[in-house]
Design a protein around this nucleic acid. Sequence first.
DNA 1: GCCGTTTTCGGCCCGACTGTTTTCAGTCG
Length: 607
Amino acid sequence: MGSTLSIRLRITTLRSDLRIPTSELDETCYHLSMTNDKIAQTLHQLADLLEFTGANAFRLRAYRNGARVIKDLPDSIESMLESGEDLTKLDGIGKGVAQKCKELVETGSLSQLEEILETVPRTVLDLLNIPKLGPKKAAALFNELNITTLEQLKTACEAQEVRALSGFGAKTEEQILEGISIAAAASQRILWSKADGIVQQLRDHMSHCKQVKQIEFAGSYRRGKETVGDLDVLISSKNVDKVMDHFGEFEGIGTVIVRGDTKMSVRLENEFQIDLRVVPDKSFGAALLYFTGSKEHNVIVRGMAKQKGLKINEWGVYRLDDDEWIAGKTEADVYATLDLPVFDPETREARAEFDWAKELEELPTLIEISDVKGDLHMHTTATDGRASIEEMAAAARERGLKFIAITDHSKRVAMANGLDGDRLLAQWKEIDKINKNATDNFLILKGIECDILESGEMDLPDEVLAKADWVIASLHYGQQQPRQQITDRIIGALENPHVCMIAHPTGRLLNKRPPYDVDMTAVFQAAKENQKLLELNASPLRLDLNDVHLLQAKHYGIPIVINTDAHRVKGLDNMRFGIKQARRGCLTAADVANSLPWKKMQKLLKK
DNA sequence: GCCGTTTTCGGCCCGACTGTTTTCAGTCG
């Protein structure tokens, strides 16, 4: 139990010697490269489709579990296979999944998946997006009525054919019809920052209910996931009815989905779902642990309980032999029955936390916002920002920072009135003047966010970049280029002696734009070799790098810089979103470069 | 399909709620 990461780390070494220069690989080869994400996605899809054929549920779980392990790996499966590593050494990967990985890497596809797709079309997976329609019912619709698309399902419901199936009825048919129309909207996860807004409002609303004793927001919100699918509210109270009545008056509620003795679910007018659970005080800790998840974390916790002759559910910890309640008031009480510490919610993903508990004296202290001393990515009115250098500096001082870098866009970003060499040098003169007049030790660094052009060249000449205190390289154009080209551009920037850091390394915009196709393993290796830093962009829309990338960067020993990329004074407050994300990546202050004073931070760089 | 300091076979987390059921299966978290 719980040896996942330790095994993973033991068999994983830096293999920079194996990295083939990207220029030596032909493009076709690169196009075909099978990333860990693609392998994980394929395994997931295989499991989903197998549900329709009535396959063994535990087999499907094994595929999904394997997919998760692969997604979290610091190294690519492709390179591991290349160097002859035995994938079955990884916890959760056996002969079956290892063989599938091999086939995917070697052929680019999976014969088993192709075979299933001949009988079960991919479109049936859409059926699973409908609330209350799970694999069993969806399979019945497919097998009995040959329904393969949402359109066909709608027609069948309207013709009242669905209610005739065993296990279905008129009510189910109605719910499916409703579900079809909300399926698309409901499947959309909202940004953590937006969920946080709802949390503040709901917390305020519930604070006016006297019957509420304790309240906490659990689920993926508490774990700090970058997007949140629904909100889990946990309340302890002696009067369930009054609490539910008050909850039901929250502004924006569209429909009440369920209301039972302990559980109530509502959908807001914008389709966002909120689940409320009301428990007695003595169960609050057990329920909080349970509803915080993740699911995978809970599965391990319960497995450990079972081994100790205990049973854990949302009501508490019970002895198996006589069913006696022994703990549940706080999370600490519950974890203590398993000799476990209280894990930071952001780490409860069944990645490394159980290994830490076993191997370390105490859990690592994750980074907090008070650790951050500088913000090294922000814009001013010189380009597309809304505040002056002095206004940004004053706001940063107010937020307790000791230094900032002004990093406006370079000229290629014409839309934002990007700076050419002359304008940039003029801006730096102004910064010198402001620094000189400063009465405290606050420091403004002369920086630039220099574009990596489509050709791979930097947007400003080396002689200009050489005069900067801080050079960020980033990629705004040519995001559709093939993997090799994008990877080469970023590695080229990392090899430029004047560049300090790559900003928003994958370019994604959450719910809006996928990351560009880039070989992150190669980027990590190049950053390591050239002693460069990588950014965690704190904008709630970016949060780029993601949590898995951060774990990987940490594994490679690459310092991370958490920056707001503020375009206005208030943008500096985005730092807290970056901190959340950093904690999900298990970063401590020691892993974050801008937790150091500038003088020390500089020493991390080669330049 | 994966795993093993009870096991290489026989397990694999647990409960609330709903709808379709005359005692439970499916879905959800």
